[in-house]
Simulated assay, not measured.
Amino acid sequence: MGDGDTHGDGIGDGGIGIRRATTADAAALQPLFAAHRGADEPDEKVDRYRERLDALVENPAHHIVVAELDGRVIGYAAAQDYGPAPHRDWSIARMHDLWVSPDARGHGAGTALFEAVREWAQLHTRIRVLEWQSLDVAADFYRRLGLAGERADDDPRARYELEVHLPSRD
């Protein structure tokens, strides 16, 4: 998927489209960020990330995509390539967020957003591991995608640690 590419899954009247976020999307995404944050306890690091969204959408180490339905932004996913460590020539990418507005769930937007992030990671030759954390509430979503995680027992918020190992492109 290129920077301006979209693809729909045929759901709904206009279908769900996934595309790379632009600086113009920052205003539309802020209410979604606020709704997502409302479901979690405050996290200063995540809030700072979201405040810098307009700069991050142009940063090549970040991949932020939006889901649209009938011209309305209904969800987003945000990932970052951390780059290779000194002892290896491949890198780990982290998915920071994947969220779909509650009124738009159940129509495939979350799956399409996840697949867009996975596709981005697979197309980057240096990324071999895509990792993220999931709250208990989203664990079933990832299980339906065929992904199972390890429960972080010491986390009072019932997080799951998940990762996908991607094929080497060497």
Rank of each mutant, 00 (worst) to 15 (best):
A21F: 12
P167R: 15
T6K: 08
R151Y: 01
G15N: 09
I64N: 02
R19P: 08
D25G: 09
L166W: 14
A104R: 05
R126A: 09
S101Y: 04
D97Q: 09
L98K: 02
G108Q: 03
V65T: 06
Y82R: 11
G4F: 13
D153P: 04
E58F: 02
G4E: 14
D40T: 11
I92M: 12
G12V: 06
Y49A: 10
G4N: 12
H63L: 04
H96A: 10
G106R: 06
Y76F: 15
K45H: 14
D103V: 06
G38W: 11
A158M: 11
R157M: 12
L162N: 15
I18E: 08
I18A: 00
A104M: 05
T111G: 12
E51L: 11
I11F: 10
A93Y: 00
V57S: 01
A67D: 00
R37A: 15
A109W: 02
L162P: 05
D81C: 05
H165A: 15
H96K: 11
D54G: 15
R118M: 10
E131L: 05
R88K: 14
R72G: 03
A93I: 01
G10P: 11
V65A: 01
D81Y: 04
A104H: 07
E131V: 03
T22C: 03
P42N: 11
F114G: 08
L166H: 05
T111L: 04
D47W: 14
A24W: 08
W99F: 14
R37N: 11
E115M: 13
I64Q: 05
E51G: 15
V46P: 06
G8E: 08
L53N: 08
R144D: 05
G75L: 05
G106K: 06
G146V: 08
A152D: 14
R157S: 10
L135N: 10
L162V: 10
R19N: 04
V57A: 02
A27Q: 13
G83R: 00
Q122I: 10
R126V: 07
L162H: 09
E115N: 15
R72H: 02
V57R: 02
L123Q: 15
Q133K: 12
F33G: 11
P31C: 01
L69P: 05
I74K: 07
D47I: 14
I64L: 11
S101W: 06
F141K: 04
V129S: 04
G2T: 15
R118F: 08
F33H: 13
E163W: 14
A138H: 00
P167F: 09
R144P: 05
A24F: 09
A28S: 07
G71H: 04
V164H: 02
V66Q: 01
T23W: 05
E131M: 05
Q30F: 12
R88E: 07
R144A: 13
